[in-house]
Design a binder for these strands. Structure first.
Length: 614
DNA sequence: ATAGGGTTAG
């Protein structure tokens, strides 16, 4: 203590106050605090205010509160800043309590516009409305900061009508106000209204660009996200860490590896430091773009890995069918004392088991959720188990699990079960399930499609016809297949059977050539699973134009011989396409990587990394 | 002396 300068040098409140503001460590702060007490400044309002803020900045709310409780008659500055500390720590109830204490003191302390700004930050609708009343009562509702805070509360909480009304009636608005309003729309899925306001802005900072790009990424509009990002770059607005996280997510969704790599090198070249957010986004991007090696590299180098980073890597291994590796990362994570598995970890690890048919390991992990980790399995975890059991052929067990679980089964889980019935050609069980669904009014479009697929798979064309009629009667449509491929930093999309791409003529010529090769190999199209265009073309013809085949044909004509072709598909790959792609990889000596809705397939020399189990 | 908007995994 004696070695520090604070014991001997004389101090004025002003010099102490400025020392507090510049202090870099909590120990340093304690010494200054001690010096302040020794000099008899412990009741000095400015000193105490600064001390409180400083403790708060070191995340020592406990010290802040002690100090506050020892202070007689705190003034509005002290009240406001302690309220701010509380709300920043998500302690809004305590914040409101302090506000009430403040206005009901014997000697009332009048709140000001700053007090209301702090009260509103991050608060929920019930408190927001309460604070709103007090804002009006104290006459601060025309203050821009306060009004922005109100807009923010209503829009974050989804009361977009109230938010918009307050917004429209504002005397003036700042970038922050607009961003709050845009965020409200964006977070609740109204991307059009968000974009409309965004386009009307006369000045934009990086935060509002981030909100808009992030909204596109969140609502799975990766092309819009990337387009807007390019626009941001073109107006010389510098992207920051938050921008890049959103853009990387978009790259992952669309499988744009070249763009993703470009972002990674942009980080290096522009001094954007790696951190756990960016690292996780990179792991996600690389794995969804088929480059598991790069995902591993980022993961291994990443410091301070949190559970989100671990989950991203577990999911990456699961998607690529590397079940053992996923299990290793999972157990490493469980061994760390800083990370505990979450519900997402279990979705990842159970999917990893499903992709390799690790039934008993999966069952063990599923049981451990509740027993060992105190996590109640959700419908998604049950879905993973139904998938694991069903794919492995334990259809009865899967069915029993759905019937006995204490959550209401949803259409997804029934779909998973029916999918497994199709895979194992179990018409009897499938019909039992469908009858159950119809009897209980649970059948939906998916039910008909799945049963129809099953009839097709077992060559029961009468059954297919019956389903076809039922679907027509119910106006059921199948989600069109869509595949994309990135060539020279540009993403090309193909929808099943479409002719929209500028190079369509060449693509279809290539497809004819491929069909010739396949015929020479003695391949005949399998009469599987095609419903979206039934009745228009004969089955064999429609099989030829599944979207991934168009994308692969485009890849063959637009990339260098021998290079890898990478495709992203929105649906699960069908049996026929899977067989055909295996053959194409053999004939053309190309490595073909297909990411379908569930996982990766790496086709090489006539076989697939999923070992035909998917 | 003090305030308002943005981030990752299925």
């Amino acid at each position: 203590m004696l070695s520090t300068p604070f014991c001997t040098t004389p101090h004025t409140p002003e010099t102490l106050a400025s020392l507090i503001t510049t202090t870099k460590t909590i120990n340093h702060l304690h010494q200054i605090h001690a010096a302040a007490i020794r000099h008899g400044f412990n009741t000095h309002p400015l000193i105490n205010f600064k001390l409180q803020r400083s403790y708060s900045s070191f995340n020592r709310l406990d010290h802040s509160l002690t100090l506050f409780n020892l202070t007689h008659n705190p003034n509005v500055f002290f009240y406001t800043s302690i309220i701010q500390s509380l709300t920043l720590n998500n302690l809004h109830i305590q914040g409101i309590e302090l506000y009430i204490q403040m206005i009901s003191q014997p000697v009332q302390v009048q709140p000001n516009e700053f007090t209301f700004s702090c009260l509103l930050k991050g608060c929920r609708l019930e408190f927001g409305k309460l604070v709103h009343c007090h804002v009006i009562k104290h006459g601060f509702d025309r203050n821009m900061h306060v009004r922005t805070g109100l807009v923010d509360v209503y829009s974050r909480c989804g009361d977009l009508v109230s938010a918009r009304q307050l917004f429209d009636e504002m005397p003036e608005r700042s970038v922050v106000t607009l961003t709050s309003m845009i965020t409200g729309y964006a977070q609740h899925g109204d991307l059009e209204s968000a974009r409309e306001l965004f386009d009307e802005m006369t000045e934009r900072d990086s935060v509002c660009w981030n909100v808009m790009i992030g909204a596109y990424a969140k609502y799975r509009k990766p092309t819009d996200a990337l387009t807007l990002f390019r626009k941001m770059m073109s107006v010389k607005m510098k992207p920051d860490e938050v921008t890049l996280v959103a853009v990387l997510s978009a790259c992952g969704q669309i499988g744009a590896l070249e763009s993703g790599r470009w972002i990674h090198s942009y980080m290096h070249n522009n001094g954007i430091r790696m951190n756990v957010h960016l690292g996780t986004a990179l792991i996600d991007m690389y794995s969804k773009c088929g480059s598991l090696k790069d995902a591993q590299l980022v993961f291994n180098k990443l410091k301070n890995k949190d559970v989100v980073a671990y989950n991203a890597m577990i999911t990456a291994y699961a998607m690529h069918g590397y079940s053992q590796e996923a299990l290793v990362v999972f157990s490493n994570m469980c061994r760390m004392h800083t990370t505990r598995p979450t519900d997402v970890s279990f979705v990842g690890i159970l999917n990893a088991c499903a992709h390799s048919g690790l039934v008993s390991i999966g069952k063990g992990i599923f049981l451990s959720m509740k027993v060992k980790h105190n996590i109640e399995p959700s419908i998604e975890h049950y879905g993973c188990m139904v998938n694991l059991l069903g794919r492995a052929g334990y259809l009865k067990q899967a069915y029993r699990l759905v019937k006995t679980m204490n959550i209401n089964p949803d259409p997804v889980i029934w779909g998973t079960l029916l999918d497994s019935c199709t895979l194992h050609r179990n018409v009897v069980l499938a019909e039992e399930i469908v009858k159950f669904l119809v009897d209980n009014n649970l059948a939906n479009s998916g039910t008909y499609i799945l049963l129809s697929n099953l009839y097709a798979a077992t060559s029961d064309w009468v059954g297919v016809g019956r389903m076809r009629t039922m679907m027509k009667d119910h106006g059921v449509h199948k989600e069109p297949g869509c595949s994309s491929i990135e060539v020279n930093n540009k993403v090309h999309e193909f929808v099943a059977g479409d002719m929209k791409h500028p190079d369509s003529a060449k693509v279809y010529m290539m497809l004819e050539e491929v069909n010739g090769w396949l015929k020479d190999y003695g391949y005949t199209p399998q009469t599987d699973i095609v419903l979206h265009d039934f009745g228009k073309k004969e089955r064999a013809r429609s099989l030829e134009v599944h979207s991934e085949k168009l994308a692969i044909a485009f890849g063959l004509i637009s990339t260098k011989a021998g290079s890898t072709i990478k495709i992203v598909k929105n649906l699960r790959v069908c049996l026929d396409c899977h067989e055909v792609t295996k053959l194409i990889s053999k004939i053309t000596r190309r490595r073909i990587v297909v990411r379908d809705r569930n996982r990766f397939h790496v086709f090489e020399d006539g076989s697939c990394s999923c070992r035909d189990y998917w």
